[in-house]
Design a protein around this nucleic acid. Sequence first.
DNA 1: GTCTATACTTTGATAGAC
DNA 2: GTCTATCAAAGTATAGAC
Lengths: 200, 200
Amino acid sequence: MKTLGKKGAATREAILASARQAFTQSGYDVGVREIAENAGVTAMLVNRYFGSKEQLFEEVVDLVLSAPGILTREVMTNAPDVSTLCRDVAAALVAKTAPGITSMDGFLIMLRSANNGQATAILRRKFETHFARPLSELLPGEETSQRAAMFLAVIAGFQVMRQVVEMAALAQAKPDQLERQLEALFGLLIIGTPVKHLTG
Amino acid sequence: MKTLGKKGAATREAILASARQAFTQSGYDVGVREIAENAGVTAMLVNRYFGSKEQLFEEVVDLVLSAPGILTREVMTNAPDVSTLCRDVAAALVAKTAPGITSMDGFLIMLRSANNGQATAILRRKFETHFARPLSELLPGEETSQRAAMFLAVIAGFQVMRQVVEMAALAQAKPDQLERQLEALFGLLIIGTPVKHLTG
DNA sequence: GTCTATACTTTGATAGAC
DNA sequence: GTCTATCAAAGTATAGAC
């Protein structure tokens, strides 16, 4: 382990910030040289400070999953009850996936990097510890781990259709309509029954 | 455009078949040399017959999207009623995403090429015409296009979590439990109310 | 300590010989 | 119509300049 001076730490942060931007926008397949260039350094320093591209990706994922996103520890633990959680997550999800917004969410990184085996292996571990396990412990009733996973699947599917594929029906729909549909789905998974009918 | 003789067309088919197998098993990151080797030719011929690896992938996508998948016109139009449709799609989805099975469904191909702009543009059009529009016309009630899109989003999300990320809770769950959960979600989107309670 | 220059390895793509 | 030879780009590793 190398000791880092002040300048070194700054460079490390610059690379990390550049990598976060690049991975979110282009997925894991973005080049290390491009990441380094946007940080004002050469590609070699990426390996010096992070060991490998894979480890750099892992650190970026940690960073993004810890930052406020659609599902955070705060959202999960601060919600007074589960129906509030449904509404909060639905609202955050619709807002963060609005057309034209380049959100830095962990789910988006996952979807953009889904074609790379190394990246998905890292994401699997991070999703388990950050989302699946705490959410599963929060749910009442039985089969909590499956229901938690389905919850995450709905979030991921909504994002891939709205932000990546950009399906017309989701990109142009009114936000409150989408929120209502998502809230109903989440309610079904969380408390076992829908909080509200879809057509109001 | 080159003119193809009998032998040329045969090698082209061999490469295409090998590519379908390879992409299904290993995803887009599989090497062109490996694809060519399994077809009994050198890597060069891949580019000669398909232009690039990307175009080869696109042709495999076309091939797979034409074949019966999770949502086909038959499933959609042959179902006597919508609740049967929910059950059929849920069962097909769980079966096709079983661990160890790498069926190259259209949704999965979409996810694997999600970071490629051209690929998503092509897939967006195919999804609209093949899935979104006919499904939307099949649904009763209001907001049919949004609900159809959400339906597709749930399918996509389930696949990405079970097949790509391989979340433990989804990969190891009992098939009939997953089917029940999916059927409830689909029912909520299709007929506006769940067909069955989750813990029932 | 911090960083650049250089090169090795693999992979996708191209040119020209037969 | 097919192959050998080669190129360009990407991830990585080493040596050494300041």
